[in-house]
Design a protein around this nucleic acid. Structure first.
Length: 431
RNA sequence: GGCCCCAUCGUCUAGCCCGGCCUAGGACAUCAGAUUCUCAUUCUGAAGACCGGGGUUCGAAUCCCCGUGGGGCUGCCA
């Protein structure tokens, strides 16, 4: 293996859940590390004493792993490295590049200087130091300020490339000043445009959620979410939409990072998620689905239901409602299903046909979908009505819905007993 | 307000760096058709974009300037 020294990092602060935007940043750093055979370092920026919480940290780590990302070094906790920051700050103090204000140490920003950044996404960006206030290095509580801790740690852990959100562009000149004052080399920067909600506003609940865990809970597959995030701000340069993390790692190039803000579109995520679910083998999908359900049914039955509904799902969570009638007898009967029944039952002949259909089904031994279909079509012919006139009310009666899987397959999976019971229950004693 | 980033179908994007192959390609969503017991899947098709104005050039989606619009930052938060 070729040894190289590319080192990137992801540095969340445990003051909340893992935001989708942060996840995207983590993803691109990971991709870059994996593509180059470099090292992905995880650092925890827990220098806000009052807001940092252990629960948040646990959730963040769990969500990163869930997405399929792994790290090679860390987690490094900033709260454990106070001595280091103090050491560096003291150097600047001694060099008269910083001063003390109360308990805090403040960096003196040199006036009227141009600071240039060579950004891998945006190209050259210039700032004038007259726009920048003196910067806090160490806060009065003894903890380092963000920009300072960031510079020290990136240097100490030999980070070579920093891929982060555009919201850090204006932090970069401040950090550059620290690198300069400390006479240490600065890494390369790549600032990615932020991810917005579909309406262009900040991503929020009403766009479908802001945290990775919300999407996990909603029943999105990690592969699908990662795939979607991947496509938001990066493109492989060929006309492909379905890309695994491994493939993306192979294809990844910072050059293909977009410099335009991307809007989060949950519809496309849902489509992708559906694609991933359809492409899973039924057994695995069933296992996943069952782990989220309270159903006690045996696996074979569960898998048959999954097979029937696989192409109809966009998220895992939709499964429960969609297949309620397979797991309990007091399933909900929806409005348009009721209407369908009423409509067909108005016709006496159709009513009789359904009774007859039920009777014939009772005689069936095998109760396969093929046989059920035969009986259905024969009965329809006998009563001189369309098969659909039999099918629609039957579907409504046994599933409580007007849409869903093929009726004959559905009946086969449900089993003779349940089907007959439901047909009798509904049609012998019409609503 | 100041500083900074950005601008291709409704959305994600390809093309832009290195101008002509772009009568601008793909995907999601939408609509229509085929299949069908419904829905979904699958297949076919339709509609849909270079923000505006100036340059530069034989030629601009591609380069430059201005305007407009969106976004970010402007904390002893990160």
């Amino acid at each position: 293996m070729i040894q190289n020294n590319i080192r990137v990092r992801f540095a969340p602060s445990p003051t909340g859940y893992l935001h989708l935007g942060s996840a995207r940043t983590a993803l691109f750093n990971w991709l870059y590390a994996r593509h180059t055979g470099g090292v992905f370092v995880l650092r925890i920026e827990d220098t806000d004493k009052s807001r940092s919480k252990k629960e948040y940290l646990d959730e963040i780590l769990e969500d990163i792993k869930w997405l399929g990302l792994d790290w090679d070094e860390g987690p490094i906790f900033q709260s454990e490295r106070i001595k280091k920051y103090t050491e560096y700050a003291t150097k600047l103090l001694d060099a008269k590049l910083a001063y003390r204000e109360g308990e805090a140490i403040i960096f003196k920003v040199p006036p009227s200087r141009v600071v240039k950044i060579n950004d891998m996404v945006h190209g050259e960006i210039c700032f004038n130091t007259d726009q920048i206030k003196d910067q806090v290095l160490m806060k009065s509580d003894g903890l380092p300020a963000y920009n300072f801790a960031c510079v020290i740690d990136d240097h100490e852990t030999n980070i070579t490339h920093i891929i982060r959100g555009d919201d850090h562009i204006s932090n970069t000149p401040k950090q550059m000043l620290f690198y300069e004052a400390l006479a240490i080399p600065a890494p390369c920067f790549a600032h990615m445009p932020l991810m917005m909600g579909k309406d262009g506003a900040k991503l929020s609940k009403r766009h479908g959620g802001v945290s990775v865990s919300e999407y996990k809970r909603e029943g999105f597959l990690p592969d699908a979410l990662a795939n979607y995030l991947l496509l938001l701000g990066w493109s492989p340069g060929e006309e492909r939409e379905i890309i695994s993390l491994e493939e993306a790692a192979g294809l990844f190039d910072v050059k293909n990072l977009s410099n335009v803000q991307a809007k989060f579109d949950i519809d496309k995520l849902r489509w992708l998620n559906g694609e991933y679910m359809r492409n899973m083998d039924t057994k695995s999908l069933a296992k996943l689905l069952k782990s989220r359900s309270s159903s006690e049914t045996d696996n074979t039955y569960f898998e048959k239901v999954v097979e029937l509904y696989k192409t109809r799902l966009k998220t895992l969570s939709e499964f429960t409602d969609m297949t309620e009638n397979f797991f309990k007898d007091d399933f909900k009967i929806e409005e348009d299903a009721k209407k369908k029944m009423d409509k067909f039952l108005k016709d006496e002949n159709t009513k009789k046909a359904i009774m007859d259909f039920t009777k014939e089904l009772e005689k069936s031994n095998t109760f396969t979908h093929g046989e059920i279909e035969n009986i259905c079509r024969k009965t329809a012919k006998k009563f001189n009505i369309k098969a659909a006139s039999l099918i629609h009310p039957t579907r409504a009666a046994i599933s409580g819905r007007s849409t869903g899987a093929g009726i004959f397959e559905m009946m086969e999976v449900l089993g003779k007993e349940r089907v007959i019971e439901r047909l009798k229950r509904i049609f012998s004693h019409p609503l």
